[in-house]
Computed example of a mutant assay.
Amino acid sequence: MEDELKFFLQYLQIEKNYSEYTIDNYRRDIEQFYKFMIEQSIKKVEDVEYIDARLFLTKLYEEQMARTTVSRKISSLRSFYRFLERENKITGNPFLLVSQPKKGKRLPDFFYDEEMQALFAACEGEEPLAIRNKALLELLYATGIRVSECANIQMNDIDFELCTLLVKGKGKKERYVPFGSFAEEAIKRYIQKSRSILIQKNDHQHSALFVNARGGPLTPRGIRHILNQIIKKASLSGKIHPHMLRHTFATHMLNNGADLRAVQELLGHSHLSSTQLYTHVTNEHLRKSYLNHHPRA
């Protein structure tokens, strides 16, 4: 079973070009199912039947997992078995007819202007790592790019004359995203006063824009760790996660009158429906403003 999982993960990496974070989720989901198979004395993936898939779904519900988590795990296993079918390892997909839980329309969380100011204040400093963190935060907020996309940025992907960034997104799709003067200033300062020091200090030679404390390329996991540290330092309360910066970018753009199609292009969404979720956030924002300020609301 380990060989089958290994080949599937290679397929996701090479053919699907999925991010390290996404591949790790697939691996954990399938390994969890492998443990379930051992509990049920099922020795081979081809021995799994529809009734076993249904039993696994019941087990997930009994563990009181969120609907989105259950849906992702079923989707992961459905894709895994589809891959095995393609490779002629099995003759049927036991997860094909397993119904996924309906996803609730959960609005994306975002930072308010005051919270963003607190995050930027938490990055102030003259140390190389503080300068890097400020550039990282400015760029993520200025462009709305994913953490995985940020980790893939190379030095020659930045055009300071046009203030644009070449972003390599999901499925090998590329797009150009503009960035503003705050991000431009922070990135230039980082390249001049931080990146070169970190690389020379540790004798690393590569073209990745963002580097870690040892001078090597910064990974998506490393970026998430840095953002979590910034969030903690800013002492922000509530449920907070690094992907909120992407949500914040989209929400603030729409709140300030940006065109929905333009935001779709900037985010790299294939379908407008993915971007339309943010209109619910802005509509709710307008509704609250109306209720708070209209004399006859």
Rank of each mutant, 00 (worst) to 15 (best):
K6L: 13
Q13V: 09
N17M: 03
Y18M: 14
Y26L: 05
F36I: 05
K43E: 15
K44V: 04
K44H: 14
V48W: 03
I51V: 13
R54W: 05
F56A: 01
L57W: 12
E63C: 08
Q64K: 13
R67N: 10
T69C: 04
K73Q: 02
S76N: 09
L77M: 07
P94V: 11
Q100F: 02
L107Y: 04
P108W: 09
P108S: 08
D109F: 07
Y112D: 03
D113Y: 08
E114K: 10
A118Q: 15
L119T: 13
C123R: 06
E124C: 07
E126Q: 11
E126P: 00
E127A: 14
R132I: 09
N133A: 08
A135T: 08
L137V: 12
I153M: 00
M155N: 14
L162W: 15
L165Y: 15
L166W: 00
G169T: 01
G171N: 05
P178F: 04
A183Y: 07
I187D: 00
I191Q: 06
Q192V: 09
K193N: 07
R195F: 11
I197V: 15
I199D: 01
I199F: 08
A208G: 13
L209D: 06
N212M: 04
A213F: 13
R214H: 09
G215V: 02
I223W: 00
I231Q: 01
S237Q: 10
G238W: 13
H241T: 05
H241A: 05
H252G: 10
A262N: 04
E265G: 07
L267T: 13
G268T: 08
G268Q: 09
S270H: 08
S273E: 15
T275D: 14
T279C: 02
T282A: 09
T282N: 05
L286Q: 06
R287Q: 11
L291G: 04
N292F: 08
R296Y: 04
